[in-house]
Amino acid sequence: MVRRIETDRLILRTVTVDDAEDIFKWASDPDVNKFMIYPLHKDIEVTKEWLRSRDIDGNDEFDLGFVLKETGELIGQGGIFYKEDLDAWAIGYNLRKEYWGQGLVPEAMKAIIDYVDKEKGIHAIVGEFAKDNSKSRRVMEKLGMTYWKDCQYSKFDGSATFDAYLYKREF
């Protein structure tokens, strides 16, 4: 399903394999990837394969690209998906490093959360981030989330495990 949401500075839209070059810009950046669960993309074919594997028509997953209205450039991606074990919607996001610190992720995520709340109804959201990732802590706080509990997570390939915080917001 093709989705499109607009904010003051962004167009949030479904991404496709045609977006692989733009997505590879952040998926291959070690600074962006440092705390991510996916391994560093070392080849654009990895990005294309990941995009082909996505279920963009899923009813319980809303993952959208962040396009700057001013330039039309795809600069990040994020969304939420339902986690049955937590009975909450989990958030996640990526943003090209040169756009960090401009409030774009909270702007995008607030719009996605509002969209999904109207479509599905949300009673809680959660977000997990490495304890050393102060930028993600700030995003969670801007989304009205607070500390819930300590946790750990690992990269999909097992190359790193992070002590983390799980933040939560109930509606």
Rank of each mutant, 00 (worst) to 15 (best):
M36G: 12
D60I: 10
D19A: 00
I11T: 08
L51Q: 00
R9N: 14
D60S: 05
D57I: 11
S53W: 07
D43Y: 04
D43K: 05
F66G: 02
P39N: 11
L40E: 09
D18A: 04
D18N: 06
E21Q: 14
E49A: 13
K69G: 11
V17S: 04
V15Q: 14
D22P: 10
E49Q: 13
I37F: 12
I11R: 06
L12A: 03
L68M: 03
L12R: 09
Y38E: 12
N59C: 07
T16F: 15
V46P: 12
E45N: 14
E61Y: 14
G58E: 08
T47D: 12
D60C: 02
F66E: 07
N59H: 13
I37M: 12
W26V: 00
S28P: 13
R9G: 01
M36Y: 15
E45L: 13
N33I: 10
E61K: 08
D19L: 03
D43P: 04
I37Q: 13
A27S: 09
D18K: 08
F66N: 01
D43I: 00
N33L: 09
K69P: 06
Y38H: 15
K25L: 08
V46M: 15
L40S: 01
D55T: 04
N59S: 10
E21F: 14
L64H: 01
K69T: 10
R13C: 04
L51S: 01
R9H: 06
T16M: 14
R54K: 15
N33E: 08
S53M: 10
E61P: 03
G65D: 01
R9L: 08
D22G: 06
D31Y: 11
G65F: 04
K34I: 10
K48Y: 00
R13I: 02
K34Y: 15
I37D: 13
I37Y: 13
N59Y: 10
K34Q: 15
L12E: 00
D19K: 02
L12P: 00
L40M: 10
L10Q: 03
G58N: 11
I11C: 01
T47L: 10
I44M: 09
I23R: 10
W50H: 07
I37C: 08
H41M: 12
K69M: 09
P30H: 05
L51T: 03
V67N: 06
D31K: 12
E45S: 07
L12N: 00
I37E: 15
D55R: 10
R54I: 07
L10Y: 08
D31P: 03
T47G: 04
R54V: 00
H41W: 15
K69E: 08
V67H: 03
D63M: 11
W26L: 08
L10E: 05
G58F: 06
R54F: 10
V32I: 06
E61V: 09
S53T: 03
K25N: 07
E61R: 10
I44K: 03
A20C: 05
R13M: 06
H41E: 13
A20G: 01
D57Y: 14
S28F: 11
V17A: 05
A27L: 14
V15A: 06
H41G: 12
K42S: 14
K48Q: 00
L68Y: 01
N33V: 10
D63Q: 12
L64A: 03
